[in-house]
Design a protein around this nucleic acid. Structure first.
Lengths: 215, 215
DNA sequence: CTGGTAATTATGCAAGCGTATAATTACCAG
DNA sequence: CTGGTAATTATACGCTTGCATAATTACCAG
């Protein structure tokens, strides 16, 4: 009764690939690797299982593509945040920290995705490379923001500070994603700001542009 | 040629259960949930697949038992560390932090196990309870150590500090386990000590008993 | 309106999965 | 030395998995 008697519709390659990748990501996110069967992925993408083979030589190739795309997206997102952040060094860092401790970064699904990919990432060289690249990108970005702060710090100290701040963010991300109901709204951001500030010996809370003043 | 022509040997229930659980944990640790098939677990434990059914009603029951046992072991280990830590508050906290940033806590296999269990934990009520319990135990333990420090802090501040310190430790654990070769020996401990100290406004580096003075 | 073609579906297959059940056999009491 | 018995193995079944291949069919050029 939809008026369309066609059994299926043809789409261009890029759209189909994207749809299949998105379906795989969603399934892995909240069901784990075991939930992302060829049939389940196809069903979620609204196609039949055979089509996957038409776009990806193997299921492993599909998940690999999914992983590298997710990682690329995370890098892009972090760059976008920094791009439109204020110029003032403290404010810049503060924006970066808080945006990393909010949805969509802090998100049970995101953590599920990470856990779901972990083991495949370990055996797959290409995936491992994508992971290392994105981790180091993130840390370098953070280190750049830190080095712009008005304070004395040699190279060794800078590296240690970047690792420490990265750890705070990662740890809060982990806790917030794993047990979301344990934290009040905005609590993670506040704790993250104060902790990073304490580690670096600067004041980020005052520097943070209060976007939520009207909320 | 071994001189023992027996096809198998009988063992008591506890030993067999433990062996099967250990096999499952090892397989999940470095192969993910998909690697822990009934047949693989049995082979690793040196038995035939049918025996698993004799000790566990289902494979899910086995992995559930494995998870709760692992969690219980972690709680026990953390209590053991605190039990034989020095009395001096700063030193006590310092020992706790550093011991959390060393093997066997920081360990690629431990992280693999965590990731491997994550999705099953999400659907299984009993496993989720075990997880929350162990997380909150750990954070409470940390909060207790922090509250013993000679400094002013109200309840809210105490809670925030515990969350922050826990995050630092978790984040460093994550990074150290995921990319072990990225850090020099002892680097994680040093960074962890300095970061926690900075967050709390105390000196832990000086308070840390230098066990490795002769190494 | 019509044929060509490539996207999509339909069908099938071998392998591995978890689980159930029957057949062995190590070990102990007597 | 001999049963009894429970731990262990052996075997099999139904189901799902990933993958291959053949049969459709939507869409476009002419």
């Amino acid at each position: 009764m939809t008026g369309d008697r066609r059994k299926f519709s043809r789409q261009n390659e890029d759209q189909r690939r994207a749809a299949l990748i998105a379906a795989a990501v969603e399934l892995i996110s909240d069901g784990g690797p075991g939930a992302a069967t060829v049939r389940a992925i196809a069903a979620r993408a609204g196609v039949t299982p055979g089509l996957i083979r038409h776009y990806f030589a193997t299921k492993e190739a599909l998940t690999r593509a999914a992983y590298t795309q997710v990682m690329g997206g995370m890098i892009e997102a972090s760059l976008a945040v920094v791009a439109k952040a204020p110029q003032h060094p403290e404010a810049r860092l503060a924006v970066f920290v808080t945006s990393s401790l909010r949805p969509p970064v802090v998100d049970p699904q995101a953590m599920g995705l990470w856990a779901g990919f972990l083991h495949q990432m370990r055996r797959d060289t290409e995936m491992r490379a994508a992971h290392e690249a994105s981790y180091l990108h993130y840390r370098d970005l953070l280190q750049g923001l830190i080095s712009a702060l008005p304070r004395e710090a040699d190279a060794a100290r800078l590296r240690a500070d970047a690792i420490a701040c990265n750890a705070v963010i990662d740890g809060l991300w982990l806790e917030g994603s794993a047990l979301p109901e344990t934290f009040e709204p905005g609590e993670l951001e506040r704790i993250g700001l104060r902790s990073v500030a304490a580690i670096l010996g600067v004041d980020l809370v005052a520097a943070m542009p209060d976007e939520g003043a009207s909320a």
